[in-house]
Every structure is written in structure tokens, then in C-alpha cells.
Design a protein around this nucleic acid. Structure first.
Lengths: 244, 244
DNA sequence: GGCCAGGCGCTGGTATGTAAGTATGCAGCG
DNA sequence: CGCTGCATACTTACATACCAGCGCCTGGCC
């Protein structure tokens, strides 16, 4: 039986495969490039995308572009209308709130678990992360903070033993980031974020699930507060009109 | 500007598009067929799939098959290893627990919302659903119950105003269903399910979020209880070995 | 008999071609 | 002048062709 040889080999490569993840290099690269461009609103909400044009611009054929667009459709970043075109989704208040709901539900559940399972060593690592966040914020390095912010939230899920929670949260988080990119970075915004991270961390150190959850929930909801202002500023980016 | 005409039309068709959802008919059909076959273990865990063979069997070309496999990979139902093959994922205890975690987190958060937002009319509809469940269970109609079960849980998310919660839950739920299909249906299992649905419903009628959440959480965890027995029965279907 | 090397057949990844459908813009008519 | 109908130029969905990489098998060597 030839399959057993294949099976054994496959099992050995799962990690490598899992790490490098999905699709070929071209397909993966196209996905990331398009996703980033959409979140950065370099591709504007409502804009029509052409497979041919994208293929030409990224110097690949239409196939990997197509596969990337399929994933983006599943992520609700584009709408594909057969025989008509592919469009960057307009920002929908409902979609943003949906993303918020999913992220909040998963991360809050995870942080509760983390509060009961966390080892001191893990918490020390998180504490180091928060310290580095304070540093980069001191230099006003917004981009670097975004990376460390993701690492913090990923770390929470890791501590809970549910890294998958972060994977799912990260996929929907794009919708929140697109909104956040549109809001002018408030001066004290970053300091506040770091302070709240510290608060969550302290709750974990006290092994207090309720406090950890409450604090994290409040922390996650800060993003949403800017939503109405952004909608007023970029009405053409939104698919739902203002409520009278 | 030509885009505005397109835009207007597109907006009008969003509902249709959204309802009929993603990809062309061939692609969608392939996805559903493969997914169902995997969950029913007609395609066995660990089995190697060939794009060519699948294309031939479903009488389509490789393209829609590929698109279906991409979605299935994102769902973690297959692993695609370049230049080697595509394999039905073995059941992993961790993956099942991940799916359970996600579903539980989302649905429990949703049911809390539902408890505060639900209108009497909505609850009456749910009550009707539970009654119909009791009927079909009386006839031992497992398949019909599965449909009504999904409708109940979808209804909970709908009541919460977060239908997206059910969409995400449903995607990961496949992993739980694959396990459930392997377990022999226990005689009183279905009655118990219906009774628990009724309990959740009563908690909602009392507008009691805590009770609703607690009951639902217990309800959702019933599936997991059969996991060890199934792993003992089908060790070759699992990717992780038994713990000594 | 055991072992190593190279051809072979398969895989998925990518590129390109074909088909079907849609909005647009113009031409011709009322 | 306004409206209707068709030719056209796009779009995506699907089919096909080609490519690089890998495991396996077999033939030859030690």
C-alpha cells in the first residue's frame, strides 16, 4: 500500500505546512497585499476591482488573484458579483459591530480561561510586552505599537490554550482596523491603550477572571467609540446612511 | 463617470448576491458536496484526495474543485500539501475543542443578548420550534431533528441581533458534527436535547441572561462527552494518540 | 542480497483560453 | 426631442494547458 508512506511523510510536514500556511506563494502574497491595501483604504470602499488589472499590477496571472479574492470574499472585504465585477465592500456599521462582537466574545472567553490557567512565567512574558509597548509609545511609534498590541492579544489567547481564538479574531479584526485607520490618532490614545493592557495583566496576576474580562471588554470597545465621527467624515465609505 | 451606474445597480443586487452567496454554482455545489462527505466520513479522515479525481467524479473541471478545497482548507477540513496531495484532516481532539470553544463563546454571548432583547413574538416562534422538535423526536427522526436543532441555535443568534454569530459557529460546527456522526445515537439523547432547548427558552422568557447562558453552555458541551469513546472506537480517524 | 541512482508518474501551482452574462453608448425610429 | 434596441466592450465563471517538485519504482552496481 503506497499511501502509508505518503501518510507518514505528510504527518511529518504538517508543522511546516501549517506555519507557511495556505496556498502557493503567489496566492498568499496576493491575499496579503490586497487585504492590507483594503484595510489601509488604498483600495477605497466601493471601488471596483478587476482581476485582470490586479493580475497585471501584481505581476501574476489571474488564478492566484482569483483565489485571493475568494478568501477576501469570505472575510467580507470584497463582494464578487458574477459577470459584473468585484467591489471593495463599503464599511457597514453592522459589519463592524459584528466583527467587534466576535472578537469581544472570543477574547473575553479566552481571558477568563487565561486567568485560571496562567503560569507566572507566561505572565512575566506578557508584562515584558506591555513594558515594550510603553517604550514605543514614548517614541510615538504607532506602527510598532500596532504589532505589539497584536502580540499582546495573541498572547492572551495563547495563555488560555486557545490560540485559535486569536486566529479567528484576527480575521475579523481587519474590519475594525480599517475604521481605526481612518480616525486621526488621538494624542493620549496610545497611552490609554497601554494602561488598559497593564490593567488586564494585573487582573490576570490576581487570577481574577471577572476583572480581567470586564477590563478587556471595556478596552476592546474603545475602538468603536470613534465610529460615528468617522462615518460623518467619510460618508461615501459607508454603505448605510446616517440615522436621522 | 461610469462607476456610479454600476454602483447603484450593485447595491440593489447585494441581497440577491448575499443570499445566493459565494462563487458560481459549480464551485458552491462542489464545496457543499465535499464538506458533507467529509462530515459524514464518507471521505475518511486521512484519506488522500485528488483534484483530478474529484473533478472527474463531480463532472466539473479542476477550477471549481480547487476553489472548494481552498474554502475547506480555511475550515480545516482538508490539508493541502503542495506537490504531495490534499488530505482529509484527521480528527484532532484539539481542533474539536477549538471548535467547541468558538461555538460556545459566540452562542453564549449571543444568548445573553437575546435574553435582554427578545420580543415576545420572537420567543413564541422559538417555542414553536421546540414543539416541532419534540414531535420529530417522537418519531425518532434524527435527520429532521438536526435541521430543527440548527434552526433553534440560529434563532438564538438572530434574536440577539447577531446572525453573524451563527454563521461563524456553523462553519466550525462541522468538526463537532463529524464527531457526533460517529457516535451511535443514544436512545434518550434526543429527548434530552429537546428538554434543554426548552430550558434555555424558559430562561429567555424570564429574561434571565445568567440562567440562559449556563443552560446553553451545558447543552453545548454534551457533544464533547462522547469524544473519548469515539476516539477509542476509531483510533485511525484521530491524529493524536490516546493519552496513557 | 542489499543499496543507490535515475527515470517515471503523480501532485498541486500557475498561466491562459473559452464561454456566458451585463451595463454602456450609440444609432435609428417615433 | 425622447425612447427603444442592438452592437460592443467589459466582467467573472469555468475549462484547459503547462510547469516545477516530489515520492516511488526499477535497474544497475557493489
Amino acid at each position: 500500500m503506497t499511501d502509508v508512506g505518503i501518510d507518514r511523510l505528510r504527518d511529518m510536514r504538517i508543522d511546516r505546512l501549517h506555519a507557511s500556511n495556505s496556498g502557493g506563494p503567489a496566492s498568499r502574497q496576493a491575499y496579503r497585499a490586497l487585504r492590507d491595501a483594503i484595510i489601509a483604504t488604498e483600495l477605497e470602499p466601493g471601488q471596483r476591482l478587476s482581476e485582470n488589472e490586479l493580475a497585471e499590477r501584481l505581476a501574476v496571472s489571474r488564478t492566484p488573484i482569483r483565489e485571493a479574492l475568494i478568501r477576501l470574499r469570505d472575510d467580507r472585504f470584497v463582494q464578487i458579483v458574477p459577470q459584473l465585477g468585484t467591489f471593495v465592500t463599503r464599511i457597514s456599521t453592522a459589519a463592524v459591530e459584528d466583527a467587534q462582537f466576535i472578537r469581544e466574545s472570543l477574547e473575553c472567553a479566552a481571558v477568563r480561561l487565561a486567568a485560571t490557567r496562567a503560569q507566572d512565567g507566561d505572565l512575566a512574558a506578557l508584562a515584558g510586552l506591555v513594558r515594550r509597548q510603553a517604550e514605543v509609545v514614548g517614541h510615538g511609534d504607532y506602527g510598532r505599537f500596532a504589532v505589539l498590541d497584536d502580540e499582546f492579544h495573541a498572547g492572551l489567547c495563547e495563555l488560555a490554550g486557545r490560540p485559535v481564538a486569536w486566529e479567528v479574531a484576527q480575521r475579523v479584526k481587519g474590519h475594525l482596523n480599517r475604521v481605526r485607520r481612518l480616525s486621526l490618532p488621538q494624542p493620549h490614545y496610545l497611552d490609554e491603550m497601554v494602561a488598559e493592557h497593564r490593567e488586564v495583566l494585573e487582573a490576570l496576576e490576581r487570577r481574577d477572571p471577572d476583572a480581567a474580562e470586564t477590563t478587556l471588554r471595556h478596552h476592546l470597545r474603545m475602538v468603536l467609540s470613534a465610529l460615528p465621527a468617522i462615518r460623518a467624515q467619510h460618508p461615501d465609505y459607508f454603505q448605510d446612511e446616517e440615522r436621522g
